[in-house]
Design a protein around this nucleic acid. Sequence first.
DNA 1: TCTAGCAGGTATACGGCGTACACCTAATGC
DNA 2: GCATTAGGTGTACGCCGTATACCTGCTAGA
Lengths: 243, 243
Amino acid sequence: MTQQLDTARRTPLNRERVLQAAVALADEVGFESLSMRRLAEELGVVPMALYKHVANKEGLLDGMVGVIIGGIDPPVRDANWKVAVRLRVLSARRALQRHPWARQAVESRTNKTPAVLDYMDSFTGMFLAGGFSADLTHHVMHAIGGRMWGFTQELFQDAADPQAQPPSEIPADARAAMLQQMAARYPNIVAIATSMSHDDGSVVGHGCDDQFEFEFALDLLLDGFERLQGRGWTSKQAMIGRR
Amino acid sequence: MTQQLDTARRTPLNRERVLQAAVALADEVGFESLSMRRLAEELGVVPMALYKHVANKEGLLDGMVGVIIGGIDPPVRDANWKVAVRLRVLSARRALQRHPWARQAVESRTNKTPAVLDYMDSFTGMFLAGGFSADLTHHVMHAIGGRMWGFTQELFQDAADPQAQPPSEIPADARAAMLQQMAARYPNIVAIATSMSHDDGSVVGHGCDDQFEFEFALDLLLDGFERLQGRGWTSKQAMIGRR
DNA sequence: TCTAGCAGGTATACGGCGTACACCTAATGC
DNA sequence: GCATTAGGTGTACGCCGTATACCTGCTAGA
């Protein structure tokens, strides 16, 4: 009877609610702590109930990625390809950055869902509409790679300040010693890490400006694309040139 | 007594043997099927025995990445930065490609081990030695990102031919129907996918030439770097120009 | 009005995982 | 000769994804 009340009171689950809850839960507890069991608990339901709405965990993740993609703006109309691509990528970046786990989720999906293919197709279309040959567009899409989702291949995050603690946590002399040790072993890394912040006087700096780095690399690529297109680049000619 | 023989006959485990076995096992069964338990079994030992040689699974993976990095050539001497970087990246690519799981492993490591830092430091050094400012080097390292390991952010793999089966598996007419359906929904993707292979007559093509795509994007970046350096680029000036 | 079907939630169970903890044993150093 | 310790063992815990069978209440067709 209480059971009846419970199930009656509760609006029945559906795919949409499951996905929204999954997104919220991942936001809250992190991607790696998102489990079917935990999600079920959050929804006040037994774990197996979820399987009526998603095929399995993979399917859940696919759906979550779909939700995120839904937050990316469509291409702007009547703009030249370069600004259209740029704006779109930055929109994707904003959409993904709303969820700290989004990057991992996108990277982990190897099967392309319709939502992903839709985005990729429309993205591809911006180059074709901009007068790129299918050939060049193809290679350019490869070169953009994950950047079309608005993230870079990191591989760099806080390499030079492994703790990222507020200075108060560590006595200044200990910090200096660590830095010296670091500089002895990894002189080049320390050189570029300190270069970044010598303006504002801090020693090893407050981390990197991700947005700047992202746009730097993006623009480098877009400029490259532009030059290739202007030059009438073809892959055939490139292959001849290479050997 | 047989126990005694067993343990006596067996050369005792050590970190090196554990890591080598882990690499071999991952090669054999795949990254996601590599488990502490399975690895222990392979070594004829109880799972917990491994923990005398690696801190935990994370530590094992760190060690495996270290083994792979060991296979990357040092920078060539007396070459200009561009060819040095290019050769090094291609060497890394070869080293990583010997193990199908290497890419996943590298991407999954978020804590930088000394081996990783060593490689990054020496990589950074190639730009500095080539006359790049610390400032430019910093941003250039970000832009290269994962490509310094010889892989691209994929995001594209077999998007257009989801099965990758030999044509014999699927009747020709069914294939044609699938393609047509695909072309209706994802016209741009299909356009660039078919462009790639129209030379040799196959319909949707044998996948992409990964090596070509990789070098295409790499050279695009390197050319961009070269131009920036020649122009005396600084991040300060770039930030002024941007707003 | 009866009933068959079905959509959606449940209960139980299995086999896997990483690893904490207590233990044993053989070699080593004093 | 004895304590220490490095290396291997055994057991157990709590997590995970999910197969399978089951129940229950709604709906549609007769």
